[in-house]
Write a protein that binds this DNA or RNA. Structure first.
Length: 161
DNA sequence: GCCAACGTTGGC
DNA sequence: GCCAACGTTGGC
């Protein structure tokens, strides 16, 4: 993955029982619509801050071994999450007005599966001490990642062992 | 299954 | 605007 100065970085949580990095890689163009975000802060990151080409750490959550499982990139601008209007979806939101959709998402293209960098390993890295993911009480499913954190993870940790 | 931590809702 | 109640997240 080549980097430029304006590139931003994100960590995005997905439950592998729903969409794992393998699932994403198996999709056409390895691309998935990031459906189901129902938190305003996380939505705002997708709607207001993400740019096509931003780097994404693909994180597996709510599973036996939580951790970073792959690399991906943002590959669309924000658009309304269709599941909010789908009465059959667990993400249905009947308070969302189709004329002014409440929930937005971006498309994410999986680039590669990595070795699993598990949560305890991330916690053990002094260089990652300030990662939002690791902050006590953090529950956000999308968090910004600094360029230094991105480099540490993609250049050092992924190739370790 | 437990539970700490957090976000949202809604009565006032 | 306050805040108690409730629902959700997510690691363990």
């Amino acid at each position: 993955m080549s980097m430029n100065m304006t590139m931003q970085f994100w960590l995005m949580k997905s439950e592998p029982a729903e969409v794992s990095i393998d699932d994403a890689l198996a999709e056409p163009d390895a691309t998935v619509a990031w459906t189901g975000v129902r938190n305003y802060q996380a939505r705002n990151f997708m709607r207001d801050a993400m740019r096509i080409g931003d780097g994404v750490l693909f994180y597996h959550s709510s599973c036996a071994e939580p951790g970073i499982a792959g690399l991906a990139e943002v590959c669309s601008t924000a658009y309304p999450d269709p599941t909010q209007f789908d009465a059959a979806s667990p993400y249905h939101d009947d308070k969302s007005d189709p004329a002014a959709p409440r929930w937005m998402l971006v498309d994410v293209r999986a680039m590669q599966k990595t070795r699993l960098i598990a949560l305890p390993e991330l916690r053990a890295e002094p260089a990652l001490a300030d990662m939002l993911l690791l902050k006590k009480g953090n529950r956000l499913s999308i968090t910004p990642v600094s360029a230094a954190e991105w480099r540490h993870i993609t250049e050092k940790l992924i190739n370790k062992k």
